[in-house]
């Protein structure tokens, strides 16, 4: 059968236990279907289709099964990952300090060119904040990655985070493609394509 999409990106969320990865990735848990069969079993991954600058992109988004509690995230989990959301909790200093360890873990286990992004989650809890936004920005600069503060609970910028990561992976792939396959006549594809407003699932649903 003909392929019905242009790109397929495998994305992961990494970070300390309790920072809100499952909520970011899936859904804030106080909803209608809470006591049903599915919530007892748990969800392994989701497939989402987004439209990015005219390309159809399939996102396969994985949750950890809680392995992060034992720091046993292994090569197997990282295999094939093209994007990783590094998540800390802005109300938890320790989770921020541990980002360094998670980055080391990624460097040891994931492919070298995996696209990373830093998320400071629970940003609606301003009164409990322990990590300033500036420190988040600084750390991201140190690692040369993008940074955004999110709230899975209040649905703040979660969708933006996924679109940003997907767009960066796409740009990287197109650059690679171009390098291995230079267009004739010196035409250059611009690395930063015009930004389109997300119109699909992310803008419609309250929580991922």
């Amino acid at each position: 059968m003909a392929k019905t999409y242009d790109y397929l990106f495998k994305l992961l969320l990494i970070g300390d236990s309790g920072v809100g990865k499952t909520c970011i990735l899936f859904r804030f848990s106080e909803d209608a279907f809470n006591t049903t069969f599915i919530s007892t079993i748990g969800i392994d991954f989701k497939i989402r289709t987004i439209d990015l600058d005219g390309k159809k992109i399939k996102l396969q988004i994985w949750d950890t099964a809680g392995q992060e509690r034992f720091r046993t995230i292994t090569t197997a989990y990282y295999r094939g990952a093209m994007g990783i959301m590094l998540v800390y909790d802005i109300t938890n200093e320790k989770s921020f300090e541990n980002i360094k360890n998670w980055i080391r873990n990624i460097e040891e286990n994931a492919s070298a060119d995996v696209e990373k992004m830093l998320l400071g989650n629970k940003c609606e809890l301003e009164e409990k904040r322990q990590v300033s936004k500036e420190r988040g920005e600084q750390l991201a600069i140190e690692y040369g990655i993008k940074f955004i503060e999110t709230s899975a609970k209040a649905s703040i910028r979660v969708e933006e985070a996924f679109f940003t990561l997907a767009r960066d992976i796409k740009a990287k792939m197109e650059k690679k493609l171009e390098a291995s396959n230079p267009p004739r006549g010196g035409h250059q594809i611009r690395a930063s394509e015009p930004q389109k407003k997300p119109t699909s699932w992310l803008s419609r649903c309250t929580i991922l």
Binding site: D31, T36, F37, I43, F45, I47, W201, C205
Partner: peptide, 19 residues
């Protein structure tokens, strides 16, 4: 959505509301 594995299957869900 794909659930965790039960036996030889994964159950399918809505990706938005998880029904």
């Amino acid at each position: 959505g794909f659930s965790n594995t039960v036996g030889n299957n994964k159950y399918l869900t809505c990706a938005d509301c998880e029904a």
